[in-house]
Design a protein around this nucleic acid. Structure first.
Lengths: 239, 239
DNA sequence: TATTGGATTTGATATAAATCAATAAATTTA
DNA sequence: TAAATTTATTGATTTATATCAAATCCAATA
């Protein structure tokens, strides 16, 4: 962990203004919020932002990059809980027991804003909207997980992979990147862990979608040829 | 929904002292917190506490009873997210979008403390520990969901049912009820929805555990004969 | 640039759980 | 209390996906 800290380089200032805080606040409020972020760090590919069990001191906001959040279970197997991209917050599970319950690793060089817990406490004492904001953020995470669990469990392999690709594309789109032409920064095995399929089934399902003319794959590069077909496919599969 | 409101009877005062708030606070603090709860309501078996989409005004604490939390998906199918018993908080998903994202139904006559959102906001402005408390509660819910998703996905039917029974027993134990002798207040179908198995598989698996001499079932009544065997079974199944 | 090791693909086979179907038990309602 | 309805059990069969195994691709590195 000490090494990790060394590697994370500090970089220029990081404004919360650039982040996707889910609340309606004025510019004046925003300026207040900027003080939340004091440091920005770089986390290079394969490096950890934090590890399961680390003491909880900060939450993080992804400025640029791509990361994964995972838990390691008692048998040492890794389960991917999600993939994280710019504007998203990390470390929210730390509030529970004052330690992180998951690990976050960069799958691509990333820049991360550090939001210290102390700073949050400090500021929210005088600036009340921040409390509500945090409540919203945490609750949204609960809802997201609930929705994920309802959907994934009832889907077959084709639906899982289709949903996964559509979701990624949508999130890229929101960041002004191509919705239907992107790089999968994770391995097939990581996809499998996330959607609960074996690596072989992930591979076969991608190939199947390709043979259907819905997508095109060149190793890590995905091109969604017919996004409507992909969505239809999703619906028509459902029983 | 109007009918539901009618049916919910107000009852005598309800103290937060009796609830399981996950924080270390003094008695003096506690007295402050008691003001959070103004009303207590009764929700009879099969009645809704709130419905998916209802406006979010309060969170709830179960005083006594047994309930289920569920989402209905776009195809009208119900997915059980959890079963709720005394001391547990409900409605935390409401903070996200100011409406409940799930429904809660009593599976047994229940008494529920109402904690109004306004009241929380009001009090947390002057009494700061409440903010941290709420952060902890919300984050704990995130962690719980994460852990659930990691475990359920990698388990076979026997492990799922064993885990389910052990978890229920443990929670009864914490409430000073029998750990190994209790009533399943939910249907087989609801169990199945919760652990992601069909009703037939739930039935067969319960029967299998009975034939192994681990449990004893008389319709809704469960008796855990050999709790260690049930736990072992859990471990030995794991690959 | 060749070598090495990990990641991916592809095929053959096994299997756990779903589905289909029919009966039985338990609850609700008349 | 009987009839009706819902819930649960049990058996036969199917199927989607896991598992096993081998080949190929790709990226790191020496």
């Amino acid at each position: 962990m000490a090494e990790d800290q060394k590697i994370k380089e500090k970089c220029s200032d990081c404004s919360v203004r650039e982040l996707c805080f889910p609340m309606e606040i004025t510019d004046a409020d925003m300026t207040q919020l900027d003080v939340l972020v004091k440091t920005k760090i770089k986390v290079r590919k394969k490096e950890y932002l934090y590890r399961q069990g680390d003491e909880f001191n900060s939450i993080y906001a992804v400025r640029v990059g791509f990361l994964k959040t995972a838990i390691t279970n008692s048998q040492g197997e890794e389960k991917i809980l999600g993939f994280n991209m710019s504007g998203e917050l990390l470390g929210l599970d730390g509030f529970a027991n004052n330690k992180y319950e998951s690990s976050v690793v960069a799958l691509h060089d990333s820049e991360i804003c550090v939001i210290e817990k102390n700073r949050i406490d400090e500021i929210s004492q005088t600036f009340h909207p921040l409390q509500n904001c945090l409540q919203k953020i945490l609750s949204t995470e609960i809802v997201r997980n609930n929705n994920l669990s309802i959907s994934m469990s009832s889907m077959n392999a084709e639906q899982k992979i289709s949903t996964f690709l559509l979701n990624l594309g949508q999130r890229f789109k929101m960041r002004n990147q191509s919705e239907n032409h992107f790089i999968l920064r994770m391995t097939r095995s990581e996809i499998g862990s996330y959607v609960d399929l074996t690596i072989e089934t992930v591979s076969r399902t991608l190939r199947k979608l390709e043979s259907m003319g819905v997508i095109k794959i060149h190793s890590k590069l995905i091109k969604i040829i017919d996004i409507n077909k992909l969505k239809e496919n999703l619906i028509s599969c459902q029983t």
